[in-house]
Amino acid sequence: MGLRTKSKFGVWLIVGAFLLQGCVTTTQQKITQISRADGPPRVLLMPIDVTLGHLTAAGIFEPQAEWTAAGEQHVRTALTGFLKTRDVVLLNYKTPTSAEASHQDTQIIKLHRVIGNSIRTFQYPTPFQLPTKKTGFDWSLGPDVARLGKEHDADYALFVYMKDSYATAGRAAVMIFAALMGVHGVQGGIQVGHASLVDLNSGDVSWFNIVGRGTGDLREAKPAIETVNALMSNFPK
């Protein structure tokens, strides 16, 4: 729990940093192209991790179940639409029937959760950037992820995380009051997320992109497409 909260906390700081600095490059990658010997590369879309909620007057994120369900669907649809424009075969992750296989997969998903949050927190030029991460991009889940490739006959796995918040009336009041008082930087809703492409042969994170901004709306299908396009910009050809 400690780690999880910390990394989420890190997210907010990074968003803060980006909002202050203006977004520089948000893509980290080892590759600019994806390929497969005998045809278009096969990309396995892992269960997407989407949470939508209110941003209350105090700046507290409060999850909202219905928005989350809708947001998850919109992101999935938009991702599918995006990948159709690319020369890839999109596969949806299915939980294996065997308990042991399912357990192994779950551990991979949990591992990526930690690694993805770490990349977002420690790779980018913020006060939290690790000295060893200032140059290069070398994160890996290790070769054991090959099991996912074998199960689904896939070359890459795509992990997507999105957290989107919307100002409540109380929050809006605080923002207006703040502006009147000459205080700037009181944020409304914030959209944070990452997409991560993992090479299922090596386990390396091949490509990683983040969004962190004060715009966007995943509650609706149309703006969700815009968000996903931003999230997937610079996706390897």
Partner: peptide, 29 residues
């Protein structure tokens, strides 16, 4: 105990850094 240490670190971060007023509502009640 580990949790406590992490959080005390966070609280220090809160005081030193910060630009946007955001937080996270604990969910594991």
């Amino acid at each position: 105990m580990r949790i406590a240490r992490n959080f005390s670190g966070l609280l220090i971060c809160c005081l030193v850094l910060a630009g946007c007023k955001t937080g996270e509502l604990v969910t594991d009640s």
